[in-house]
Design a protein around this nucleic acid. Structure first.
Lengths: 133, 133, 133, 133
DNA sequence: GTGGTCTAGACCACT
DNA sequence: GTGGTCTAGACCACA
């Protein structure tokens, strides 16, 4: 599934959260898919079960997963969710930050734009079907 | 100068680092400008001096500031710095991540592009003079 | 009959208990009505039979149902039950809690009262016939 | 501050969550008040620090507290928050449930109304000042 | 001092 | 089997 980097400055549970999010966002995991059980993932990653559970719970809080005690943990479907304005503006803030950094490193605004377009180009295989905006 | 948000998840020293970086990148602080002393900033932000100290040290380490004993802390000039490829690709990675997240939240690629263009528009006052790329 | 929400934090058997209680209280199920067998309900809800079993047993224990071996499970009649003072004061406690919460969320006492009246209004179709108080 | 009931079916951390919420809602704890540190409360309640932390974190998720690592945990101010519609309708659901139960226990709608009015009366000392609705 | 993370290992309720 | 809670005790970064 993925690997944990113990040397990273990110905490283990945070790495798990990010990795699972990515699997969901890239479509490797789809709505209603069952995730490995806490104990299973604990073994394959050689990480304490509590740590896995913490990650899963965090993902549940963030709306990516839901849990049925005794059955397992599943990918939540998020269609129809009201778009989270707070989240959006947070992402915009991060984008601004990145723009600023690139600018500081010597890139002109035009160059930054072309970099971004390039990145979008790479994703042109993604399907806009069902997109709300 | 700027404000600290205690409620943020970011640690205080990290907020200071980010804020100073931002001031430098946006041109509010220019090369050779003198920063407030540790004690001064400590008072204006009502933050422990050790915390300010740590932030300044981190900024020094990252090349944004330099210190002259007995005189104070100053903004370093960065012109002529070799473009840090590692940093660039890290930023690109973060941009990709943001794209993925917006896409996941229901935005089409076109919409994402227009969001980014909007953000760039807001910075159109920035001067490309002296940009290397 | 009703639906189970796997995403709910409530355990499945608890949802069944609550739903059956509701059906009884709203008069959809009346004294001596026969409930679906464990196997039947298990199929229609696609839920493990053990889970249904546990829910029925709980409802029996709480006095809502009774079982006749070989015949099935039935709704118990509750007329003439001595009013359970302990239960009443427990419900009052919960009401207090809800009042507190609404108040905390910014509602005035008057507004809270009108919310409650509204909820009662929705139930004005209920029949007070036979009520002891 | 409060006591934990080990015999309760509520988990310890949940009891802490509920108790702290109540302290906040009743005004015993006010915005920006500092809560006992994790270790402190751990000692006074003779409960493991991890359990306290879990409770505090839960309260943070729910918006009642905020945390500054190295400084402590504080009561968040919630004024100006957009009223959480989801929360409101959840509370309404609970109120309906209580109404239903009282009805089932033999109370007429009128009696239920008078019970609720009585409960509100007890809180008539509360001040509506600053209430949004 | 503060909160945050992590481990090892136990016990419980639910499916 | 599943997730959920709890303990005891360790180590880290931040203020």
């Amino acid at each position: 599934m993925f690997q944990i980097d113990l040397k990273s400055r990110k905490s283990i549970y945070e790495q798990i959260v990010d990795n699972v999010k990515e699997l969901i966002m890239t479509g490797m995991l789809n709505a209603e898919d069952r995730l490995p059980s806490v104990r299973e993932l604990s073994k394959t990653l050689t990480v304490n079960p509590n740590t896995i559970q913490k990650a899963y719970r965090e993902l549940e809080y963030q709306g990516y997963l839901y849990t049925v005690a005794g059955l397992g943990t599943f990918v939540a479907s998020h269609t129809g969710l009201p778009v989270d304005d707070k989240k959006i503006s947070e992402i915009k803030g991060r984008l601004q930050e990145n723009i600023r950094e690139l600018f500081y490193l010597g890139y002109s605004l035009n160059k930054i734009k072309s970099i971004f377009d390039e990145l979008l180009e790479e994703r042109s295989d993604w399907n806009d079907k069902g997109k709300l905006y």
